[in-house]
Design a protein around this nucleic acid. Sequence first.
DNA 1: CGCCTCGTTGATCTCGATCAATGTGGGTGG
DNA 2: CCACCCACATTGATCGAGATCAACGAGGCG
Lengths: 223, 223
Amino acid sequence: MRDRSLCSSLDDDRLTDLHRIGRRQRLAPGDTLALAGSDSSACGNVISGALQLCASTADGREQTVGTLYPADFVGWLYASETPFTVRAICESEVCTFHRGSLEQLLERHIDLERQLLRQALAALDDTRAQMLTLTRRSAAEKVAGFLLDMAVRPETRGQRAAPGGPLTFDLPLSRGQMAELLGLTIETVSRQLTRLKIAGTIALPGVRAVTIRDEAALRAVAG
Amino acid sequence: MRDRSLCSSLDDDRLTDLHRIGRRQRLAPGDTLALAGSDSSACGNVISGALQLCASTADGREQTVGTLYPADFVGWLYASETPFTVRAICESEVCTFHRGSLEQLLERHIDLERQLLRQALAALDDTRAQMLTLTRRSAAEKVAGFLLDMAVRPETRGQRAAPGGPLTFDLPLSRGQMAELLGLTIETVSRQLTRLKIAGTIALPGVRAVTIRDEAALRAVAG
DNA sequence: CGCCTCGTTGATCTCGATCAATGTGGGTGG
DNA sequence: CCACCCACATTGATCGAGATCAACGAGGCG
């Protein structure tokens, strides 16, 4: 994870370079780093926590179009207007630079630029895969698939009660945020979770906690 | 457009370099350049025509997750498996390289790499914007928005009967391809088009031809 | 001419949205 | 410590947009 961040591909001299123009910023849950349509010039990377990219229509419908985890790049280069709102999902920390400074820095450090290219290409594939989910998968498939994703993410490292036993972890998202991410409503997400609970596939020991009791069944639902 | 292609940022020496390892390929409509899950090493850019990136679920549901026009990059770097099927929408031409050769070339020519980074970042924003459309817009909004997009695209340059008069152009996509792109079914696309026709907003002089008779009304429907 | 693909139109069904009420847990102030 | 509040989650009832199933039409080509 660390090795994918902007800072990591640099030796000490360059790190100094970077820190001279960068600034650390703490975000509380719900804080916005940039507002869609604004001309925020902040670019950088996530250090800790998780952010979401949020797109919205003129009349207020919203959709989460990306989630950013530590080491992910955040912000827009070569552009003057921010296309999506960037909001903290949970307590987070970011390291930001002025767009111009970072663009100059990238020109001087091609390894940094290569790093960013790889990240962008990977993000593009992830985003496209998510498009398939959003349009062609059912609510049940979406929710099951999401739980499997979250169980595996290093950011929400799940704990097994026993080796091979059920896996328990905390969701970093509220029901509303899950709905926004999956292109559903709060009610539908909630109903799908209770369906899985009743089927014995998962347990919900707390409002944010999930236990995967039957991973094979969950995979079957995810399709 | 031309100035965004891989070849364009090169001087003559470098172009020679590029052509030594590249190969031109013609594609008929429906031809696949790469199959999802295969390990095609072809990377390059579109020269003419249009390609689509197609994602599909295990049970055969499909979604177009991107459209590639001349100068767009096609293929996957730093990856061994092709995540999406690449298919020609119409008669097209591409210029491809082996992944490895292109990666080496990018290391030697940083301006090429920068070009690619810009394209990737732009494609990422486009893809994310499309996610909003796919989940939160109605069928009517999707179809109206799509027509407005196509009317403006240089690839399908529309013709006005008179200055300020109605704009006519040919769709490069069949109804089925439009449905796949917009996350709808053929029937829904067809119904939305006839709804717009009956309202007098558009005319459909041929099966592929569209005339925008009331652009303001079309924009209002697109939201 | 008959075939074949593509598009249109109609009837019905279904999944998820919407509207509405109720439950729950954590924090605050009396 | 408890009562209250408030945001969040669950559950139920109903509705509707778009999918699905089915039939028909229109152009292109051997």
